[in-house]
Nucleic acid binder design. Structure first.
Lengths: 203, 203, 203, 203
DNA sequence: CATGAATGAGGGTTCATTCAT
DNA sequence: AATGAATGAACCCTCATTCAT
């Protein structure tokens, strides 16, 4: 329902999924390394394990690869967020756990997140909007978890800000690694951030 | 000591500065609009008010333009930060004022900051390191202000985190404008963020 | 004896004829619209109602399609010319009738004729020669009709020229339609041309 | 006023004219040989005596080359037609002379005319219209000459037809050379055609 | 016989960079 | 110092053709 936005010459839907997965995997590796603009379509094809001709059987333009890649990254984040979030009972402790898992997840996906930060703006207006909507959804989930877990200590507005802060602080661990990861272990970082955030909410 | 890293054929230092200022101004406009990779050197020359040949009298490669531009943006931020920070007497209130001015500054320079986020990675290893050092310096300044203003309520580590959070939350206002600026005015945003941060530190 | 010049993997001659007829029909539609070079083999296959793989069971190269198409057009013209010409008794009136039917035919096949004019040169030397021979035959038929109908008023050479003129004036109605069809109805055009031609022959 | 329809990066108007003349010359040679579609831009550049990069300093797309080429051919024809036509006093003899010179001209430009017939349809709607207008102008000139020279023997409509016939019979000598030039010398052809045409008008 | 996924040579076009003037 | 014409490597993308199923 979303990958189908990108048109393919090939009819076999399973094959499309398979080839695009190869493609995305190859593209992520390359985009991490040299960014979207410095990566050529031939390199993407090669990294995907097929020819340039085949690549273009599954996409229409190079930008499609970027879209599929960004989309896949968000999809991955969303999926893992939902797994981590759904199990919890509403309570301060469960909120802490949710934030912790989110930070661990962001640690895991540092480089992928970087791609979003640096390349998503190269998507066309419409496509970018579609991708940003996904991001908004994730922040919304976070916000709901917060309001669910500590409803008494926080206003709606504060929850919005808090959700955004958590969201970006998770990214920050990755895109500011050269400064943060030299001074803190992941556990320390998580601990300090959660403390700072929740102490504020508890006052 | 820094712009001289970029080699020029021209001897006259004043002229170099003048031409490069034109160049940076043109480049920022263009990079805001279409990013570094989608901007051509011809366009930069035109926007700078001189010919492509002249452009290359003052730089060696296109990347030099990016470097000069990023450098100039940081320089601009640094300068204005220093102005805003130096006057204050250490106190909780002065810290609040510092943060406020920083947020106003970031509101002002939203698009320039975006350039740094999206394009700085296109700099060569060495050059990028040079630029990042400047950023580190700025966070350090923030950290010192914090430790200076509220030494009793905060540990060294917490100050590091807080400085980074402030720093990034300032950027966030710009690069997440599509979500934040629809829900909050700048003043509300500042108010909420400062409250959340400092309440935590005060508990 | 002529379509067999194009090699097919398929044995069943009837099937070959059937498929090639589909193919020619599809190709003519496409060539009218966008010309030979801008039409892809995939489009031809689709317009023919079968897959690209099947297309290549019945031809060897894309040029074969062009050849078959040109050949079919000529064949169509020839067939209808013969029908129109054979019935007549030699006389001035019957010559007029012949020319009239030829002009009506050319009006009917305007677009097909255009294909011949614009694309036949893309055929390989040998193949093109084969096609041109067909054309020559048709002019010969015209010439004979002329000599048959008005032997006294015309020399052999004049008949050759006249046959070629009629032939091309028929085409002209189609390929100069943007100029002729705005000024004349088909009937007027026929009337004027026949008058001009035959008055000359009658002097 | 017409070549300027094609945009160039280069500013020096004289240079543009010089380079485009080289380009047109190269292109005509190649188009004669293999047609527009089978000619690559690299070949055009080479035949023009400069690099592919330089080629694209003087045009925007490959189609521009076709346009410039067709335009130049028409311009050549027009120029020579005007020279041949203007000197004459209106009389039957002068009309004959005009037609003769036109046929000689067409003999000279056979291959160029063929390009127009076969490739002009590859021009975009608008551009093609522009080119066709030039053709219309030429037929108009012929028509006026006719009406001027033999006003008494011919109606307006007949003159239109006659002008178109002369026009196309000139082309025919070239694009049907494989049939006509084997049977007639140019002089014979001219003689026969003029006789046929004017005898008709004189009856 | 029919299918359609796979291939890769090759085409049009761009653009960073150079260098003669 | 300033100019801008020239260059060609390299990019994105297409499409005729093949071949395993």
């Amino acid at each position: 329902m979303n990958k189908n936005k990108v048109v393919s010459n090939v009819k076999d839907q399973e094959l499309i999924k398979k080839r695009r997965d190869q493609m995305i995997k190859g593209a992520i590796t390359l985009f991490k390394e040299k960014g979207f603009h410095r990566t050529t379509t031939r390199e993407i094809a090669k990294a995907s394990g097929f020819s340039i001709g085949t690549l273009y059987e599954y996409i229409r333009t190079k930008e499609d690869v970027l879209y599929l890649t960004c989309d896949a990254i968000y999809e991955q984040v969303r999926e893992r967020i939902e797994n981590a979030f759904e199990l919890e009972q509403p309570s301060r402790e469960s909120l802490v756990k949710v934030i912790e898992s989110y930070f661990y997840l962001m640690d895991d996906l540092q480089e992928e997140i970087l791609i979003l930060y640096q390349e998503a703006k190269s998507l066309k207006q419409e496509t970018r909007g579609y991708i940003l909507q996904k991001e908004r959804n994730m922040v919304d989930i976070l916000e709901k978890v917060i309001l669910n877990c500590i409803p008494e200590q926080i206003t709606k507005q504060e929850a919005v800000i808090l959700a955004n802060n958590i969201f970006v602080q998770g990214h920050m661990w990755g895109f500011r690694r050269w400064i943060l990861q030299k001074q803190f272990s992941l556990e320390e970082y998580i601990h300090l951030q959660i403390n700072a955030m929740l102490r504020a909410a508890e006052k």
